[in-house]
């Protein structure tokens, strides 16, 4: 409750400063203004980093959940069904967490979620039709890219000097979950999928492209 009021006051000051500091800088090109403005720019940069991280993580967990839904549409009644269901539930748990963070941090979500909705489900569905090995190969490829990306984000937060413990702990826990999913995929014959290597690389490139787009748009 009180934090909301405090954030409101902070927002008020920030808005006013943002409206006029830039013009001041244009009028007076002196070191005096540069020193003050560099502090403001640092805060803006930190805010931008947090926004990008939460936006792309939110999109990523949404896409991952959709991939598992696509796989379940085909493999729900097979031996691997309960395992995929478990991983899907975990992704939905991650998604709920980032839904909450998007609201709390006032972050703009990505505009591409309708595309990830269809693309994720399609990827999961088609790979599952190719057999359970291909489905597991997709899981391994996607979770590998996501785990690496979580590590990059933790490094980014440290480099920028952002001390948001809740966000860091969340990213660490989810990264470990994704690594576990990757291991599950490998244990269940992911590498036995036909054309595993090129198929895996193709999925990885697609995932990285989605990450890059969701960070910005």
């Amino acid at each position: 409750m009180n934090s909301l009021i405090k954030s409101t006051k902070f927002l008020k000051k920030t808005n006013i400063i943002r409206s006029y500091c830039t013009k001041t800088n244009n009028n007076n090109n002196t070191n005096i203004t540069k020193n003050v403005l560099s502090e403001i720019e640092k805060e803006k940069l930190k805010r931008q980093i947090i926004e990008r991280i939460i936006r792309v993580d939110h999109a990523g967990e949404f896409g991952a959940a959709r991939i598992y839904e696509g796989q379940l549409a085909v493999l729900a009644n097979t031996k691997e069904g309960p395992l995929i269901r478990e991983m899907a539930d975990q992704e939905k748990e991650h998604q709920a967490k980032f839904n909450q963070l998007i609201y709390e941090k006032r972050v703009r979500p990505t505009i591409l979620s309708p595309i990830w909705n269809v693309a994720g489900f399609g990827l999961g569905y088609v790979s599952a039709l190719m057999g359970k090995e291909a489905a597991m190969a997709v899981t391994v490829a996607v979770e590998t890219v996501i785990s690496d990306h979580y590590n990059d984000q933790l490094r980014q937060l440290n480099d920028a000097g952002i001390d948001d413990k809740e966000l860091k702990e969340t990213i660490k826990k989810f990264r470990d979950d994704e690594l576990e999913h990757m291991h599950i995929g490998i244990e269940h014959d992911a590498e036995l999928a036909p054309l595993y290597k090129p198929f895996s690389e193709l999925v990885k490139v697609g995932t990285k492209t989605a990450i890059w787009l969701s960070t910005r748009v």
């Binding site: 909301l4 927002l11 008020k12 006013i16």
Partner: peptide, 30 residues
């Protein structure tokens, strides 16, 4: 205020109203 002080005046008023609205609503909420 810059080259166009009339525009700055209108923008200031709009920004101020938006901030006041948020303060009023959050106070009423809490």
């Amino acid at each position: 205020l810059g080259e166009d002080s009339a525009y700055e005046l209108a923008l200031y008023f709009v920004t101020k109203c938006n901030t006041d609205l948020m303060i009023k609503l959050s106070d009423a909420e809490n």
